[in-house]
Amino acid sequence: MGATFILFWILSTLAFAAAMGILVSKKELYSVLSFIVLVFAISGHFILMNAQFLAIVNILVVAGALGVMFLYGLILVRSHRDSEQVKILYMRIAGVIASLLLLIVLTAAVSKASQNEVVLRPGTWIGHVDKIGEELFSRFFVPFVISGLLLLSVLVGTVVIIINREPAPDPKSVTL
């Protein structure tokens, strides 16, 4: 219990700090970096729960591929600097209050679920890569194929929306 408990708190603090970093940092770059830290923290949680395959997939896909995509998106966008507009204050306050309310409501709703209070026990086989592979190619074959189609549609769509052979309009002609 001891080591798991301590690691849980360390990783949770890290995840919380990273999430706050995404939320409050002024520069987008630091948001992206916080996001990568968050992904690592969540992968750490996965490893604590003995789901190593998911942890490594999370790192590979989200921190590795998606984070890089975000960085490149940022490079493209920030190379043309413009002043960032600030949202109106009362809208901000309303947003903060709304999400805090959501947190309270969710937590309160679930805290009543006393019958589900279950202890996690470390050390089971289901997170192992061969078991997941077996499941993926037998029982979950149909969702697997559907997710392939989903990725393919994103590929096609990205080509459709990004590559256009017509010249882009003059940025000055866009009235704001």
């Binding site: 939320l23 975000f70 809208m91 709304a98 805090l100 947190l103």
Partner: peptide, 18 residues
């Protein structure tokens, strides 16, 4: 839930699409 509502807060308060 904490992470989730921080995300919601970000969606409601931030203005940058990224």
């Amino acid at each position: 839930f904490l992470l989730f509502s921080i995300g919601v807060m970000g969606v409601l308060t931030r203005r940058n699409a990224l």
